[in-house]
Design a binder for these strands. Structure first.
Length: 453
RNA sequence: GCGGUCAUCGUCUAGCGGCUAAGACAUCGGUUUGUGGUACCGAGAAUCUGGGUCCGAUUCCCAGUGACCGCCCCA
């Protein structure tokens, strides 16, 4: 590079008004959302319950990367599906790898299962995972380009008792979130063999009724005939109502599997609805599929979660033939539903003590005192930046603490602290070295949580 | 990816060609110097972005952006 050019560059940099900078857009990207502090108690509740039930049902946590090779998803979810066809965040890296942001969690879990030889672990291998997934579609309520899923997968067990247990877990999760009215819908879409036969039968039927279907459904006969079954158009659902149903055309193995599953569910007294039109959007499902619907008014029912068996997926991906089943819930939708039905969010522990300081000397000492309180498990609030005792008491009052510790100039010199009972207003002066024990005694023991010492 | 509705302080709303853009809630400060509530007083805080019409645009028109709704699909 010649020196003239360099000189020019330097001159340019010296004149900032010449540099055209993109304006800062203070806005989340389309379909992306901040999870604000005000909403965190709901999220925390979902996290805590999910983690507890995962543990109780024997699931181990697995975290996989958000970014994977793009074809991991296209192969497993299905090339023809909408998720892969038009909703994936796919891009080339600097190293020219074709990668994608994960649109769901199961594919990555399967990859990890095969990569790390988890087939050698005792079966079933139960995997719990949670995190954000990405789909580039048009946002609306309950649908985001980034959303969080809580996901459960179990590998290596084909007995329908596992299907029943997984469905029970899904049901129990939603119940425990406080959503009592959600509806469990179940169907069996058969295995590769009987589904193929059934598809032929269905296509024949639909072709014969082609004139009575909407435009979209006529197209779907070719692309995805199963989807015609849950079209919302009146005329289509009339055709669908008389269409052959997959449950009536299962092979013997699939029929027995489904029958046994239903027996287990009945034994559990788990309420469910068999929806012969329930079809899921991912190609890898076999046999059992299920979905949990919110109880919102008709037409506004959103799926809170869903899943099913995917007995051939591991083999398709190159692992040894391994039956598997799993499901995911959408956290944003769960949170929205919890709010709608007024389910209780997580209630974080509130400080019972407020530390007020007055004067420069006391202000200096207050930081250390606060730290000592914290170390002793006494959850303490403060507002050190405020000057007047009045304004600090105002904050203490608003926080509804039981006691305010007042450290002023005089107390600091005497080595004492005032303990003020906020309910009665009564005050006592105690020596600083007895303060911790006294406060511990005054507040209830269950509010003292020591993490370390 | 297609169609529709909408867009004012942090939040909820008012104004609808002529502003210094109004109010409530919230926030912060104050009502005498070391004590909470209420009340009262005060402060900060907004017309999404870019064009166009007009003497003049927050208001009307167009585009962009975003939110929401319907489809498609999905959690």
């Amino acid at each position: 590079m010649d020196s003239k050019k360099n000189a020019k560059k330097i001159i340019k940099k010296a004149k900032p008004e010449k540099i055209k900078e993109e304006p800062l857009v203070l806005q989340t990207l389309r379909g992306m959302k901040d999870i604000l502090p005000i909403d965190q108690p709901y999220w925390e509740q979902v996290r805590r319950i999910s983690e507890r039930l995962a543990r109780d049902y024997g699931f181990s946590r697995l975290d996989t990367p958000i970014v994977e090779f793009a074809n991991l998803f296209s192969r497993s979810i299905g090339e023809g599906t909408d998720i892969v066809e038009k909703e994936m965040y796919t891009f080339l890296t600097r190293g020219a790898d074709k990668v994608a942001l994960r649109p769901e969690l199961t594919a990555g879990n399967c990859r990890s299962y095969i990569q790390h030889g988890m087939n050698l672990l005792p079966k079933p291998v139960k995997i719990f995972s949670t995190g954000p997934v990405y789909r580039y579609d048009r946002p609306q309520e309950g649908r985001y380009r980034e959303h969080y899923q809580v996901n459960f997968d179990a590998f290596g067990e084909q007995d329908p008792i596992l299907d029943a247990q997984i469905i029970q877990l899904a049901h129990r999760l939603v119940q425990t979130f406080g959503i009592k009215t959600a509806q469990m819908q179940i169907n069996s879409i058969g295995c590769q063999i009987c589904r193929k036969d059934y598809k032929e039968l269905l296509v024949n039927y639909l072709d014969s009724k082609k004139t009575k279907l909407c435009q979209d459904c006529r197209r779907r006969i070719e692309t995805n005939p199963l989807r015609v079954l849950d079209c919302k158009e009146d005329k289509c659902s009339q055709v669908a109502a008389l269409a052959p149903q997959s449950v009536d055309h299962l092979c013997e193995d699939c029929r027995n599997h489904f029958k046994t599953l239903l027996e287990y569910l009945d034994e559990l007294d788990l309420p469910y609805i068999i929806n012969p039109h329930l079809v899921r959007g991912l190609d890898y499902y076999t046999k059992t599929v299920f979905e949990i619907l919110s109880s919102a008014e008709e037409g506004k029912k959103l799926s809170l979660g869903g899943g099913g068996r995917y007995d051939k997926l591991i083999k398709i991906m190159g692992g040894e033939d391994t039956p598997a089943i799993g499901f995911a819930i959408g956290v944003e939708r769960i949170v929205a539903e919890m709010k709608r039905v007024q389910a209780k969010p997580y209630k974080p522990p509130r400080p019972k003590v407020f530390l007020a300081q007055l004067g420069n000397l006391a202000k200096k000492k207050s930081l250390k005192l606060f730290s000592e309180l914290e170390r002793n498990g006494i959850l303490t609030a403060e507002s050190f930046g405020r000057g007047s005792l009045k304004s600090q008491l105002k904050v203490a009052n608003r926080l509804k603490v039981e006691f305010t510790l007042i450290l002023g100039q005089k107390e600091t010199l005497d080595g004492t602290v005032i303990v003020k009972n906020m309910a009665t207003g009564a005050q006592e002066t105690v020596s600083a070295d007895k303060l911790i024990d006294l406060v511990k005694k005054k507040i209830k023991a269950d509010n003292v949580v020591v993490y370390h010492n």
